[in-house]
Amino acid sequence: MRSPVAWWNDPWRPPRFLVGITIGYLAWSLLPVAIAVLYSFNNGRSRTTWQGFSLRWYWGDATLSVWHNDALHTALIQTLKLGVVTTLITVPLGVLFAIGIDRWRGRLPAGANFLMLLSFVLPEVLLAVALLFVITTIALPIDLGTTAQVIGLITFQVSYPAVLVRARLATIGPQYEEAAMDLGASPLGALRRIILPMLMPAIFASTVLVFADVIDDFVLVRYLSGDAATEPVSVKIYNTARGAPTPALNALATLLLLAALTAVVIGFLVYRYLTRGDTTTKDRGIGAFAGEV
């Protein structure tokens, strides 16, 4: 048995305390969700007492299951619709914006960059209320509902691809583009044939991240939803969580979780394929994918 002093002075002793905190944290952060997923397979109405395994709340139950209940599957479809439409508009908008801002020097692009970063850190509820005011007090051809939700989500998410693409542009540097232009390419040609292919991993990662973020969004989509038909899953959970819901709500949340995780896992695998042999993202793995830059 070593003396405590020797143990304390040993620089190679395993960091037990930190391991303990990390494992404890992971259990605390993931177990409640795992339990909620588990109870979506419960055979009874309870969300707290296990009564056997069944798929009753997914499609077995003829009126209350996700498959058969209109309100629940409308919510799921609305969520996925918002995710796809928002992503398709946000990513090109953000990527072009980032390239333009990065190359264009002056006060105007600096101000635009400031606005973009401000929209990144502004508490979401402020933007949501502001957009709600715009739509309810000004006679616009836009009503509360899917269009308003998409507009709000694009505004809130556009900084995501912009930040990721700018970070990638900074690591690429100007030399490839200059080489292409010295060899006779026009600025647009160099952009299209050199820079865009090199940006592909960042663009792809931001596509996946925006999609996963949008389908989890709550604040904006709730304020800008029109009627019950445009309420996505997160709003449905918020509205019914405290009013004795059935495990069908767990099932709905589980399906949402599944959609987000599938998108992210597929995204990560494709991202790894796109960045194979790339030294700047090597060894960074999932961290580089998640955009910690």
């Binding site: 992971l26 952060s29 993931l30 409640p32 969700v33 339990i35 909620a36 109870y39 969300r47 707290t48 996963a212 389908i215 989890d216 709550f218 899953v233 997160s234 959970i237 918020y238 969580a241 405290r242 709500l249 767990n250 949340a253 949402l256 979780l257 987000a260 995780l261 992210v264 999932i286 998640a290």
Partner: peptide, 19 residues
């Protein structure tokens, strides 16, 4: 595992605690 909670809806995580 650290990143996983990012892709789980905030509402779902709160709902898990309600349960």
């Amino acid at each position: 595992l650290l990143i996983a909670p990012f892709w789980i809806s905030y509402m779902m995580r709160m709902f898990a605690w309600v349960n």
